[in-house]
Amino acid sequence: MDQGTGIRIEGLWKRYGEGGAAMDALKGVDMTVAPGEVVGLIGPSGSGKTTLLKCLGAVIEPTRGRMTLGGEVIYDAGWKIKDLRTLRRDRIGFIFQAPYLIPFLSVTDNVALLPMLAGQPNDQARERALELLQAMDVSHRAQAEPSSLSGGEQQRVAIARALANRPPVILADEPTAPLDSERALTVMRILHDMASQYQTAIIVVTHDEKIIPTFKRIYRIRDGQTFEEAGEGRDISNGQEPSKRVDQPA
């Protein structure tokens, strides 16, 4: 899939309410995330992080501005792409603070669900899921119920699910919040690996001081406006080879 330009946001506004009660949650946000890049989005509560994430996730509509995901314009000055559900399914991967795996599906089927929803045959979707689970090092729990997995394992399955349809964009909302330092860094390492392997543009919304140093670039958001700054870009490769790219032959 052509990963295009990753994420590009220009002059994005979001206003809640009308008249005197109107409140601008986003005030002309500009942001660019290149394919293969992982950037941090940091800000205090009420700064507009979640609103920005919801706009990027095509679950709420911006008031004005322009958004491009994976080379496709999804919003431009009032015009928006019509089939937002399909857009979310095919072009955006979501990782949440909690894994939110579907409890009545096996680990494999949790990951395979997206390709199945996109119309892939079940066996192909499961094959893809197993490859991703292998890459996330949780393939040994492929048939298990999500509730039997540890928090770290569940989060890795959630990452595998986000990657299942090879989206050009992944939005991660506090993905390391419930994890200890070691597991949080493991998750970040996986995200960095996946970004570079699949040329996926990843935005990680976080408060987590443990992982902030891993970003090369950070967007701080304050009062609905973003401010770009350089991050430490600390190496967290742990001296290990990055995970095998799963959509290439071995």
Partner: peptide
């Protein structure tokens, strides 16, 4: 409800 919200977010159609 939370699982349904996730299903909708990841693109599951209403009819499903």
């Amino acid at each position: 409800i939370r699982e349904i919200a996730v299903l909708k977010l990841i693109g599951t159609q209403n009819r499903t």
